[in-house]
Simulated scan of single mutants.
Amino acid sequence: MSETTGTTSRDGDSGALEFPEGHYTDVRIYPILGGPGSLSGGTGTFSSFGTFSAGQFSPGDLPRIGDHYNIMATHEGVNYNFSRWKCTHSGGTSDFREN
């Protein structure tokens, strides 16, 4: 497995994120300022419209909408860091967007 880490940046012409679309494994999510919404060993998907969806959060530890989270995930053997992403939907599967 590669230890390369992706970063958030935008392509000047298209505005596209450098994160690859598709399925992610070994998803780990940590609230930046503490509080609920930790996830370890989850799965996720990064969409073409810039949303990272991850789960399965336990009902007693859902992320809070508006709070910021650090997300680490693996896609095709490469580790990616989604630093300081904001929760936009909270549930068993929750959504996060770059802030």
Rank of each mutant, 00 (worst) to 15 (best):
M1W: 04
M1T: 01
S2F: 01
T5W: 00
G6M: 07
T7R: 11
S9W: 10
S9P: 03
R10T: 14
D13M: 12
G15P: 09
A16R: 09
E18Y: 08
P20G: 06
P20H: 06
E21C: 06
E21F: 00
E21H: 05
G22W: 00
G22V: 05
H23N: 10
T25S: 03
D26N: 12
V27G: 03
I29A: 00
I32S: 09
I32N: 09
I32E: 07
L33E: 15
L33A: 13
G35T: 12
G35R: 00
P36V: 06
P36D: 08
S38H: 09
S38M: 07
L39M: 13
G42N: 06
T43N: 05
T43A: 05
T43H: 07
F46D: 04
S48A: 15
F49N: 15
F49Q: 13
F49W: 15
F49L: 11
G50R: 07
G50Y: 08
T51H: 08
T51G: 05
F52I: 01
F52W: 04
F52M: 04
S53L: 12
S53E: 14
G55K: 06
S58C: 07
S58M: 09
S58K: 08
S58W: 10
P59R: 01
G60C: 07
G60I: 11
D61I: 01
R64W: 12
I65S: 07
G66L: 06
G66V: 00
G66I: 05
D67Q: 03
D67H: 00
D67K: 03
Y69G: 05
N70H: 12
M72H: 03
T74D: 04
H75S: 02
E76P: 02
E76C: 02
Y80C: 06
N81W: 08
F82N: 01
S83Y: 02
W85Y: 10
K86F: 11
C87H: 02
H89C: 10
G91A: 09
T93M: 11
T93P: 10
S94P: 09
F96N: 03
R97G: 08
E98N: 10
E98T: 09
N99C: 11
